[in-house]
Design a protein around this nucleic acid. Structure first.
Lengths: 238, 238
DNA sequence: CGAAGCCTTGATGCGCCTCAACGTACGTGG
DNA sequence: CCACGTACGTTGAGGCGCATCAAGGCTTCG
């Protein structure tokens, strides 16, 4: 196995403040993996043996209910950590992580976790900040699901995807990995039918352009407005 | 101000493995606060200046949407930490923490956070485990909201409350703090009307007994069964 | 070139929100 | 201590948002 190049991770937030020699040491215990589209990186209920950083691609994190329904917990973009169960004291991975496209990840054994965070406090801080952001996001999603209607939630999901994985094109900003109506329905707690109807409507109104597994948003602001409640100012008087 | 007694916290999980002298040092920088029912411990959007442990009582953690709707993020039981924003890199508290009954809390300034987790790794581990559990809970709630119907969610909420704050009585197990229909609706993403109808029905069926702001569950198992989907085994064949 | 996966669109129905009205327990101040 | 205001709880009637059921078209890939 050829040595991994520190340049792979030197610029990523979790590692940014770590010196070269230490990076090389870290990489010494890492394994690089190519994960083809559709394959699992880790599975719900499996013993958590490693944590990962996604070097390239996009990962879909999915929970499966006892009845077999799927709910997408989040998408992971390139440069983000995943499989942080050890940091939170889990024995098993709580969800499936599936490559949405061909991916490249680095995997570290969880056995080096304690030592790593002890030796690199900036890494620890950064990691816990990531977890904090994810907890926030998840809380926000609960609030959304409790208070907003499907149309708003779907619009919000698209806008959020644009922020994290958007790529500019001439027609607008597109979501940079294949995403189906079903995926969006699993992110927002609705059905693919309803998502299809919504997207059809928005395409008709010129807000988006969509092909099979591909969505380009041309009027992001309008979409954001739909997401934020239909321009109803809180009328506190009466 | 009189010295705080280490016995107050010595038996609580986060502090269990810390020696007496260090506990006293920790308590040296702590402030004990009595918070009357209904008062805020900290507020959404406020600068996060402290973290807390709840010595006695129950705390309701509530998010408020831009439109003024409330969503209950969680209840905190005695012995749990709260206001852990610093650990996750937040500058502001992301929600309101309100005393559901008269409470007693210890407050530490966030300035001692870094040093504390550095000096007491068991405290750090324990804290991050708490956060892990809460992240899990929140994720589970998203899954519930996406896949289950109101009746199941309300039943699940009651069962969960029994686990964390249940107190045995002769009639069954009661939720040990005043909780309204509205509270439950804000935990489950429905309306107080629907909750009222459900509880009325369950009371009629002898599953629960309920007074004003007071719920006693006599048939916990049946309730758990309602929560877990109406006894529909996953039919994987077709 | 066929099969499988993805997408669309219509018809139908129901779960739950909304609106409305009233009953009841609580606590506060005269 | 009683009267009143306020918060909490109940129950009905009506309707809408979205799931569900159904059927068919289109793209991709082996």
């Amino acid at each position: 196995m050829t040595k991994l190049d520190p340049a792979l991770i030197a610029d990523l937030p979790p590692f940014r403040e770590i010196g070269r020699p230490e990076l090389e040491e870290l990489l010494g215990s890492a394994k690089a993996l190519r994960v083809p589209k559709g394959e699992k990186i880790f599975g719900q209920g499996e013993q958590a043996k490693s944590f990962f950083i996604l070097l390239d691609g996009t990962v879909r994190v999915v929970k499966i209910t006892p009845l077999g329904e799927q709910v997408i917990a989040r998408f992971i973009a390139a440069g983000e950590l995943l499989g942080l169960s050890q940091a939170l004291g889990f024995v098993e991975y709580p969800a499936n992580a599936i490559a949405a496209v061909d991916c490249v990840v680095l995997a570290w054994p969880n056995s080096i976790w304690d030592e790593t965070i002890a030796k690199h406090p900036t890494f620890a801080t950064n990691t816990y900040q990531t977890i904090g952001t994810r907890l926030q996001d998840t809380q926000d999603r609960v609030v959304e699901m409790a208070t907003e209607r499907v149309e708003q939630r779907v619009a919000a999901a698209l806008v959020k995807l644009l922020r994290t994985t958007g790529r500019k094109t001439e027609e607008g900003t597109m979501i940079d990995f294949p995403i189906s109506r079903q995926d969006i329905s699993e992110m927002t707690g609705t059905t693919l039918h309803t998502v299809s109807r919504l997207l059809s409507g928005w395409e008709h109104d010129g807000l988006i352009v969509s092909k099979r597994q591909k969505i380009t948003v041309s009027k992001r602001d309008t979409l954001a407005q739909i997401a934020g409640g239909p321009a109803v100012r809180p009328t506190l008087s009466h």
